[in-house]
């Protein structure tokens, strides 16, 4: 995928237009951070782009070698819920999502993905035993289990400590260097270098300080 083009996106929820006339271009290697106060529609926009909500107006298209593949199948979505089953171990959860999300049969081992987020030794622990921050890191390790060009991240740094935020920033840089794209909604700085920002209205502009 070489670029993602959004033109005049509108999303309705409960009879109200939450997201109105949003346009942006995202090219390979770029990152876009959606900003806005609570309720400005950041999550709604991301969920619509991921294909979970219908667009009520506008056009979303992508170009490149994978243009015929639907956009959701090219996207990783990390939202508020971690998508983990507490009865299974961290490694089992990741192995499952690798099978489900990867396009090829060759997926990295769960333990190498967990090592990147500093949880290698906890691979065989049931997710129920992990703390909120650890669960979030297992959810983020999913990004490494299947290569997908677009990462859609809704508040990815929630419950993460400083060290993990650093790991996340490194992963972002690596993903962009390999031609990936990142679309994130956040209140806190994510460590995304030269990210474009998308203001969804009445947001204090200084939150964009992704130094």
């Amino acid at each position: 995928m070489t670029s993602l083009l959004a033109r005049d996106l509108c999303v309705d929820r409960g009879g109200r237009t939450i997201v109105k006339n949003i346009s942006f271009d995202l090219r390979a290697g770029e990152a876009l951070v959606a900003l806005g106060r609570n309720g400005a529609g950041k999550s709604t926009l991301l969920r619509a782009i991921a294909g979970f909500l219908p667009l009520s107006g506008g056009r979303l298209s992508h170009t490149g070698a994978e243009a015929e593949i639907p956009l959701p199948e090219l996207s990783h979505y990390v939202g508020h819920a971690d998508g983990l089953k507490s009865a299974l171990t961290a490694a089992e959860n990741l192995a499952f999502w690798a099978r489900m999300l990867a396009r090829s049969d060759e997926t990295p081992s769960p333990s190498s993905a967990l090592q990147r987020v500093g949880l290698k030794r906890l691979a065989d622990f049931p997710v129920a035993y992990l703390s909120a921050g650890q669960k979030r890191r297992v959810a983020l390790a999913r990004l490494f289990m299947a290569p997908r060009p677009l990462w859609i991240l809704d508040e990815p740094a929630t419950a993460l400590d400083i060290a993990s935020q650093q790991v996340l920033a490194e992963a972002f840089a690596e993903h962009r260097a390999a031609g990936g794209m990142i679309l994130a909604a956040t209140h806190a700085p994510l460590g995304l270098v030269d990210a474009a920002t998308l203001d969804l209205g009445s947001a204090p502009a200084d939150l964009g300080g992704n130094a």
């Binding site: 500093g118 949880l119 290698k120 992990l130 650890q134 400590d161």
Partner: peptide, 13 residues
């Protein structure tokens, strides 16, 4: 196990 999970967290951090 739960203690170990949390201790591991500290040592890896």
């Amino acid at each position: 196990s739960i203690d170990a999970a949390h201790a591991e967290e500290k040592s890896e951090a």
